[in-house]
Design a binder for these strands. Structure first.
Lengths: 126, 126
DNA sequence: ACTAGATATATCTAGTTTCGATATATCCGA
DNA sequence: TCGGATATATCGAAACTAGATATATCTAGT
């Protein structure tokens, strides 16, 4: 189980929302499902992140009152907060994806060093 | 300029040390050079990280007394702390690389969704 | 000899992030 | 009516981040 750090959490959540509006609990389950259970984003990480996304204008929100079939029409019912990717959020997602690719390619330069570059010292003057 | 977070910092530092022993300042320069200036790991991030690596037994350390050419043999000179990847550190690096690949491939599943999986709702019961 | 800038390690502090625990409340099947 | 799943949200301790600060040496230029 790989726990997502905030940077990757934001990328993943934004990606999930790019496929359509969703809400906290569903996003969390979606991430677990789409990663075969490898990724986990807990509630305590999810909600502060979604709040930040909203504050930064990357998503817009709407409350839905989920009424049970035979529920009292006067009862408030269960609240569900939907998150929709905004135009700004879409742009941010594209930026994030680009940064992610750049990070990956440079990181690969470290974890996949070209053959023949082995050295016993750092290369700087001792 | 992409600032490395601790997770990636550890991966990168371990990777640098896998190519040969080095010391804080040189590692920092090495990272900047090998990433074309894209990655930065500041001193305030580097030294606590190296200390943690040492504490966890992933690296072994040796102090070197760097004497100037005509320096007083009795002077203490500049100190330089060398870090060498241990067997445990080598194993940890391999684990980290594996995790990194796994993270990348799953993340790609989010940022490069297979065509045709678009949906307007989360897929969970509403 | 003096000076500036690079080399070199390390800590401090304020702000941010992390993560499990906790709180509240509803829905649904047995 | 009870337990587990659904659903959002905050709390607090610990870890992490990043710039500033501290100390000291080396090197090149003047």
């Amino acid at each position: 189980m790989l726990t997502l750090k905030q940077d990757n959490s934001e990328l993943v959540v934004l990606s999930v929302l790019a496929a359509g509006a969703s809400y906290g609990y569903a996003i969390s389950k979606d991430i677990a499902a789409r990663s075969d259970g490898h990724f986990k984003l807990s509630a305590s990480g999810m909600y502060p992140l979604l709040t930040k996304l909203e504050k930064n204008g990357l998503v817009t929100t709407d409350w839905e009152e989920v009424k049970a079939a035979g529920a009292d029409p006067d009862s408030s019912g269960r609240r569900r907060k939907w998150y929709t990717l905004s135009a700004k959020g879409q742009k941010q997602l594209e930026r994030r994806i680009e940064m992610h690719r750049q990070m990956q390619s440079i990181l690969d330069g470290f974890v996949l060093p070209a053959s023949g570059n082995a050295h016993t010292e750092s290369g700087l003057a001792g």
